[in-house]
Nucleic acid binder design. Structure first.
Lengths: 180, 180
DNA sequence: CGCCGAGTTGAACTGAATCAAGAAACGTGG
DNA sequence: CCACGTTTCTTGATTCAGTTCAACTCGGCG
């Protein structure tokens, strides 16, 4: 969830931590009440389906927030992974501070409500696109949602996020460049 | 967003209203800071794409909450429609009570955060499915998410929600019945 | 009745997946 | 800094799930 409006209140007493490219922050089976605010670098969350295929739910470059909401809502272990695509510096928002709403201060709750609304809006847009747009249209929208990210991360990850194969994305990019 | 856990606090001073099947509660271009809690009947939200095709984002049978979050977040007019699929009774949650978080009481905010987390989780599940599941798998999951709704509403609306054509849904249902 | 929207079925078509093979880029150790 | 192996990207040929278009049936409602 995007946060270029810096979430000062939520971050006020969050500690920093560094991860190396490839480090896994959360794996299936883990239980986590932690959320990460990315200061530098890029994280991703993804699931692995029954056929062993990876599906990327979200990228989190600078200014984005990423977490395992399902685990936090259901108070049970996660079915998703979060890992670092680049060397990344995060601020860690602990569960006690953040995801047991009862103990949060009102101004922090307000910030949360607003962040959640944005995330819901983003996800709704993605649902509509998956339903109605072609691979090419979705790739173009990816570039609007995550400016410049296409130059930083492997194409196969973009393909996974778009819900197409790397081969198809390669062809889509070819079409865009040759003609347009 | 599902609410079989009755949202008592949010509803505490919400007024009731009845709509007839076919009534439009919100249309593109309207600005609304209202949310509806469905007590009886069924609403739906949908968008119309550039080709004039309808895409259903959400159904709201009894116990669900439905609204135009985008409009509320961005403080601008909506690009979606909400209408009644059946004669429906709702409780209206007004913006001043509900979507200007600053004036909400802390217990109400906590309820909101929890509702939003559930909606985010539901949407994430749908994104994963649109990316990775076949039409048949998605239809089966629809029946889990909205038990019995398949018997109440036209199939072409289910098809729109699933992101397939009515013809395809017809064939999927045939396959399921003939073999299984 | 007769009509009209909803659902079904068929046949041809298409966007994207799959499978396969080769080319380019990448990083790791010598 | 180069050499090598591994991963990523590209391109081609084939297949397949779902679309499109068209014709027909059914069931409810005037």
């Amino acid at each position: 969830m995007k946060g270029q409006d810096n979430p000062e209140l939520i971050l006020s007493n969050a500690v920093s931590k560094d991860f190396k490219k490839g480090d896994i922050l959360l794996r299936t089976g883990d239980y986590s009440e932690v959320a990460y605010y990315v200061e530098k670098g890029c994280l991703r969350s993804f699931v692995i389906d029954s056929k062993g295929k990876e599906h990327i739910l979200q990228f989190a470059p600078e200014g984005w927030l990423i977490s395992d909401l399902e685990g936090m809502v259901n108070k049970k272990s996660s079915n998703l992974y979060i890992d670092a695509i680049e060397d990344t510096t995060v601020r860690i928002l602990k569960g006690e501070e953040r995801f047991v709403p009862e103990v949060l201060e009102k101004p922090v709750l307000i910030e949360l409500v607003q962040k959640f609304q944005k995330r819901i809006f983003t996800l709704q847009k993605r649902v509509i696109q998956l339903i109605s747009a072609t691979a090419e249209e979705r790739y173009n929208d990816f570039n609007l949602t995550y400016p410049d990210l296409a130059n930083r991360i492997p194409q196969k990850m973009i393909a996974s996020y778009l819900g197409i194969t790397p081969e198809s994305l390669s062809r889509v990019r070819k079409d865009i460049s040759t003609h347009k």
